[in-house]
Nucleic acid binder design. Structure first.
Lengths: 221, 221
DNA sequence: TGGCGAAGTCTACGACTGTAGACATGGCTG
DNA sequence: CAGCCATGTCTACAGTCGTAGACTTCGCCA
């Protein structure tokens, strides 16, 4: 994986550092923080284990940088506006398909959560990346809670479908599964208070008092 | 933790075996499969590491028995019938509170998911325990998928709130969080096809067309 | 072309892992 | 009281872990 060196990489500090970082992201995603050693990562990058300590200081700091790389893209949330729930649900179902080879931040998160230090690093990364990105899309009351609940649902589906591989979810029809998840995400994307009709004390008889969490419909269909 | 031996346990094979098993459940739940060694488990049980191999054959088989013990109680799903979503949501919020000391099968699941062998053991245990229990409560179309989706949501909340400790969910007001989760579980508890009216196209006619996920309102507010 | 600093490697250490085999010990039965 | 087998412990082994220090090699610049 991640071919070590095509012709033999010459002495290029930046390229070597990047090769180590790429190998670390892949390795941590596949096996988790405790499941992979620095020797294995170094071999994937085509270098020696000691170079990891030279460039990153320690395995823990390498992990922190790998987490930053893996959590940076906003692919965890797909689509904008009214299409956010559907797009996110369909992307989630597609990427967690049993035959999919795609990696992603959720696999890294789930497989490294057991280690307390790794958990702390990821908590801080989530506060930086995912929280910021999601708050751009979600507005309304409790946007932070709803954003993290969307992440929770996605993480749970990744866990069951890809990490554990439970039967029902693995064999479910993708379209119907995506529709169910879309309804869940729709409930979290809209900013209204939960269960509008069942809360008698909620002011306002209209079940959707503030239904404009999305500024404008995006141009693309 | 789990005081090794009050006065000094005499030679009692069954009690010793049970002590090892109890210590294993606690240790695997706290640190995950790869995060704890057999010596540590044995010390918690007040015995020597080799006795684990004598009674269970290997660390992996001890883990399998611990998983069976941890997954056996049906506490992952609370309440019955119409009160299932609310009861499950409130129990989930209570047990995942940051100050809660309670352990549980989801912590064991999340913290051991990185190891492939542990994942396989837990997949089989879920197929036995959780699937059977949940299918007793949930009926209708795609009951298995909906059951595993309920497990997914719960696992995600456990991950974010207790394992990672993300800020928004950790600091959320328990009552409002429980209401949001209750609406999610209500969507999964009812057997109807997802998105009854929003599927044709998101024309904003009636936002809440069919909203009777629960037969009767639970007594408590 | 020489040399010098950066880039990369080699060896090794101490700690830890799961487990196999040999050894010790105590409670029950004759 | 004697013996014996289940119960439990001790020592050890082969392996892996992260990483510190010394060493070598290459590329650039004067």
């Amino acid at each position: 994986m991640t071919d070590p060196a095509p012709g033999r990489r010459r002495r290029d500090a930046a390229a070597t550092r990047q090769a180590i970082l790429d190998a670390a992201v892949a390795a941590f995603t596949r096996h988790g923080y405790d499941g992979v050693g620095v020797r294995e990562i170094a071999q994937s990058a085509g270098v020696t284990a000691m170079l990891i300590n030279r460039y990153f200081g320690s395995k823990e700091r390498l992990f922190a940088e790998a987490v930053d790389v893996a959590f940076a893209p906003r692919t965890v949330i797909a689509g904008t506006g009214a299409e956010l729930p559907g797009e996110t649900a369909r992307a989630l179902v597609r990427r967690t398909a049993p035959e999919a080879e795609e990696l992603g931040p959720f696999l890294l998160m789930l497989r490294s959560a057991a280690n307390p230090q790794a958990a702390r690093i990821m908590r801080e990364a989530i506060a930086l990346h995912a929280g910021r990105h999601l708050n751009e899309e979600l507005c309304g009351p409790d946007a932070g809670v709803r954003a993290e609940l969307m992440l929770s649902v996605q993480a749970g589906v990744w866990l069951m479908r890809r990490v554990l591989g439970t039967t029902a979810l693995a064999e479910a029809e993708p379209e119907k599964l995506a529709e169910r998840l879309e309804s869940l995400f729709g409930l979290l994307a809209e900013g209204g208070s939960p269960q509008p009709a069942r809360r008698p004390l909620a002011e306002g008889g209209s079940p959707q008092p503030a239904r404009r969490p999305l500024a404008a419909a995006p141009p693309e269909g």
